[in-house]
Amino acid sequence: MLISLIFDMDGTLFQTNKILEASLQETFDHLRELNKWEKETPIEKYQEIMGVPLPVVWETLLPNHGEKVRREANEWFHESLIANIRAGKGDLYPHVIEVFSYLKNNNFSIYIASNGQKEYLQEIVNYYQLDHWVTETFSIQQIPSQNKADLVQAILTKYSIKKGAVIGDRISDINAAKSNGLLSIGCNFDFAQQEELSQANIMINSFLELKTIFANLNRDYLEVKN
């Protein structure tokens, strides 16, 4: 039986921090030009909330602005992110391709479940040719509830998954695993918070650790609990 692994994207597979600051700065420069922002760009605030759905992002960063401004800011932000990806300014975390190749060769199926927008996720998948290893990439936009646990459940249902794990860096990933009876693996990478990672079944500091984990782990432990 195939074992299915569901990976987060930002802060887990893709080093979003390499393009985040520049894209966010450009977005708030637009707002300043329109006299709709006077303060410093809230980069640290965004880093704190990485992993939440986009509506929550802009409600948090622009609490005193209306929906129209938030929607425009989101559009500018994603245009900049995509431009930076195409320019090669982003990067995957070290050993992602090596580990994906190992997993694929050892009867694991790989999926991506992210709170990112479809176009943004597809740009990353295309640029790094992740479709070679990844069965399908899912965006939170596909789920009305905007809840990552529901997104993971949709993946399990579509592919009749019986065993698996969720690998991510934030509490939404850990909760999505627990809610669906999956193993949770927390990635101690750029945006991770120790309080959240402590709730994962396993924590890793490097992608390479996944090779050892899945080589030695009892596969019965990965069975989805109904």
Rank of each mutant, 00 (worst) to 15 (best):
I6N: 00
V96S: 03
S4F: 05
V56E: 13
P53S: 07
M203V: 15
A215T: 13
S114I: 08
Y93D: 06
N35G: 14
N126H: 09
P63F: 13
E123V: 05
K68S: 00
A200W: 09
F100R: 03
N226V: 13
L81T: 07
H132K: 15
I49E: 07
G11M: 03
V166M: 11
E38M: 12
M9H: 02
P55R: 05
T27F: 02
N216E: 14
I112K: 04
L217S: 10
H95M: 11
R32M: 06
A177C: 04
T41R: 06
S101H: 12
I85E: 02
I155N: 01
Q15N: 12
I110W: 02
L31K: 00
F100Y: 01
I82H: 00
T157K: 10
D10R: 02
N205T: 12
A154G: 02
V99N: 03
K148N: 13
K36H: 02
V96Q: 04
S160W: 06
F28N: 00
L182E: 07
N147T: 13
Q47D: 07
Y159L: 09
K89A: 05
T16F: 08
M50Q: 03
D10M: 13
S179C: 10
S23A: 14
T135C: 03
N74C: 06
M203F: 07
D169R: 02
N188D: 13
S198H: 10
I82E: 04
M203Y: 05
R32Y: 06
T135F: 00
C187F: 05
L208M: 14
Q141W: 06
D220A: 11
P55L: 05
E195Y: 08
P42R: 08
L2A: 13
N188G: 07
Q129A: 10
S184I: 04
E59D: 14
Q194S: 14
V69E: 00
L61Q: 01
L197E: 09
L121G: 12
N226S: 14
K45I: 15
A73T: 00
Q194P: 04
L217P: 03
L62I: 01
G168S: 11
H95P: 00
N218I: 11
I82R: 04
Q122V: 08
A177I: 06
N188C: 12
I155H: 02
K89V: 05
Q194C: 08
R86L: 11
I185D: 10
N126G: 08
L103A: 09
L183D: 07
E21S: 12
L13V: 07
D91E: 15
K89W: 06
N188S: 15
P55I: 09
L217F: 11
D8L: 04
Q25T: 14
L20P: 02
E196R: 11
Q47L: 04
K118F: 14
L61Y: 07
N147E: 12
D131W: 08
Y46M: 15
E79F: 02
N17S: 15
T60F: 06
K158G: 01
L2H: 10
V96K: 01
S198M: 10
K118H: 12
F100I: 06
Q122I: 09
S114F: 13
Y221H: 12
A22Q: 15
I185V: 15
A215C: 09
A73G: 00
F7K: 03
I161W: 01
P53I: 11
P55K: 05
A215F: 06
D173F: 03
W58K: 01
G88R: 10
